[in-house]
Amino acid sequence: MPSPDAIEELTRAVLARLNDDLPAADRFPTDPSTPILGDGGVLDSLGVANFIVGMEEAVERAFGAPVSLSDQDLMGLFAESTVTVRSFAAFLSNRLNT
């Protein structure tokens, strides 16, 4: 099953792909500590939607395992009020491995 590092790499790749579709002034950092969801998150509501759809598709392509994130309240799945690239990857890795 995918390691947390592999998921983190995939998460950053999806964020980089989102950046490619944005004007230069609107692009955001993709390092592991970047808050992406919740308080202080760099993604707006459309960005969050693009991100979770991008993650679902990328996970299925990379690991052949479907994962559903878009059909539920994503923030409700997290205990923290701010989700970083790394904490999102850890959450997803845990979900894929259980």
Partner: peptide, 22 residues
């Protein structure tokens, strides 16, 4: 095959993937 995105449609009322928009 990813031209239409049902996920994006239901989340944001965007029927197409960004590959179409590109």
């Amino acid at each position: 095959e990813n031209a239409w995105s049902d996920r994006l449609w239901y989340l944001t009322k965007t029927p197409f993937s960004n590959a179409v928009f590109q």
